[in-house]
Amino acid sequence: MFVLIWATLLFSVRGSNAGASMRERQYCPYGRYCITLTDGEITAEAGLCVVIPCSFTTPDSFTTKHIVWYKCEPSKKKCDIIFHTNKNNINLQTGFKGRVSLLESDLSQKNCSIVINDLTASDSGSYQLRVNARTGGFTFLSRATVSVKDLSQKPTVMIPPLTEGQQTTLTCTAPGLCSGSVPTMTWMWRRIGENDSHITGDIMTENLAVVTQRHSSTLTFKSSAEHHGTNVTCKVSFTGDTTTEETVTLNVTCK
């Protein structure tokens, strides 16, 4: 299940070539303490999410009680805590609270993969893992690198055949399969020679898996000859003022 979720998320945030360039490498600097991370830069897009794939092994005598993820900045001597499985930890960096989650909550599975939602450009950087036992812990020096680019993906607008006098429904689906916060979706209706008319659609969320969701909005109206040639735009706004839109032109068939 984890492999399927990971592959699906990578496809959604990186595009159709996601799986082609993603490779993993295991690092074992101290023998029985090993971590497996993506070999190379993980690319994601603003407004959506990123998956940092990760797994680890420790000696049998080391029982992992908590895992901690850090974001490391070149300008700082210390890394900032962005995620801690101890819910009482108060040292989390403010900007990451509520945005980071594990793909697998059972630490005995040695799966340290995380999802970071509501991405912004400031999330670019390197991320480091620490595993804690009841006493002491171990910090892996190998880091995962994330690069957040501007959002290039567009919504998908589905138009059924339009016939004059019949009721029809347009459907707009937001890009990506996870973002964290539910986006705002607005329809803009523009006839030739007229100004835009803004309509806020009802947003429907479909849960596909543990952390994957599909957001969509519908616009229902009765087709008429006047609608022929009308431009309809679906605009999707994510957290952090990240927006994307798609425009379609209606083609109405007369009876």
Score class of each variant (00 low, 15 high):
T218Y: 02
L162H: 01
H66I: 00
T200H: 09
H215A: 07
F62D: 01
F62S: 01
N88R: 10
E73N: 15
N91S: 10
K71I: 12
D123V: 01
E226G: 11
C34N: 12
A20R: 11
G240C: 07
G98D: 05
K255Q: 08
S216T: 14
A174Q: 07
A174K: 11
T63D: 08
G15K: 05
N17Y: 12
N117L: 04
I5D: 13
Q26C: 10
Y33K: 03
S113D: 11
M158Y: 08
E206Q: 14
I82Q: 02
S124A: 10
A20T: 12
L107F: 13
V51D: 03
V248T: 08
S152H: 09
R99A: 15
N86G: 04
Q153D: 07
A209V: 05
E41Q: 13
T163P: 00
G201F: 05
T145I: 12
T8E: 11
T57K: 13
Y127V: 01
T249K: 06
T249Q: 09
T220I: 14
P53Y: 02
D39P: 02
N207E: 09
A174V: 15
E45R: 09
L162K: 00
M158T: 14
L48G: 03
T8M: 13
G176N: 13
K222S: 12
T58F: 02
C49F: 03
K76E: 14
S113V: 00
T242K: 09
C234E: 00
K110G: 11
I192C: 08
D150K: 13
T186E: 07
E45V: 00
Q167C: 10
R190A: 13
V146P: 00
F221E: 03
K222H: 09
D39V: 04
N111D: 15
M1L: 09
P175C: 07
F83L: 13
K110N: 15
P29F: 09
T200L: 06
L208D: 05
K222L: 05
T163N: 07
A121Q: 14
G229Y: 03
H228M: 00
T85C: 03
G180V: 11
L37N: 07
G229I: 02
R214S: 15
T233D: 01
I199N: 08
I52R: 01
P160Q: 15
A225H: 03
L219C: 03
I82Y: 11
K77V: 07
V100L: 04
V210S: 14
T244S: 09
S142A: 15
T156Y: 06
Q166I: 11
E164W: 04
C112K: 01
G31Y: 06
L177S: 02
I159R: 01
T218Q: 14
L151S: 02
H228A: 00
R14T: 06
F221D: 02
I42V: 08
G15W: 02
S237L: 06
T63N: 08
Y127F: 11
L10S: 04
F140W: 13
V100D: 00
M188T: 06
T212L: 12
P155I: 08
T184Y: 09
K154E: 13
L102D: 09
N91L: 10
I67E: 01
C172G: 08
T156D: 06
K235M: 09
G229S: 01
K76D: 14
R191W: 11
S113I: 00
S197P: 02
N91G: 06
C72Y: 00
T43Y: 12
W69T: 11
